[in-house]
């Protein structure tokens, strides 16, 4: 039984670790938006990745993390790690 990582989990972690851009509504439909458009550059995503790893006890593949350009892609990536761990 693996914990499921949702877009709301991601939003919470983004807010805590990287803050929010006032011009972006994180509560809107952002799943398919590019992180750059949401105001999150490479450092913000590294911080976010590191927080996810700590909280969920997983180790994200570095290249895959860098390739996850949208919240939806990152949520999928985290869930694939969680699923792999559950096997």
């Amino acid at each position: 039984m693996s914990a499921k990582f949702t877009i709301d989990d991601l939003k919470r972690i983004l807010r805590e670790g990287a803050g929010t851009d006032e011009t972006v509504d994180l509560d809107g439909d952002i799943a398919g938006s590019d992180f750059e458009e949401l105001g999150y550059e490479s450092l913000a995503l590294l911080e976010t990745g590191s927080r996810i790893e700590r909280e969920y006890g997983i180790s994200l593949d570095e290249d895959a993390l860098a390739d996850a350009r949208t919240p939806a892609a990152l949520v999928d990536l985290v869930n694939s790690h969680l699923a792999a761990r559950a096997v």
């Binding site: 803050g19 929010t20 006032e22």
Partner: peptide
């Protein structure tokens, strides 16, 4: 200050 600057 913008919210993105505060954590850093």
């Amino acid at each position: 200050l913008p919210g993105r600057l505060l954590p850093q």
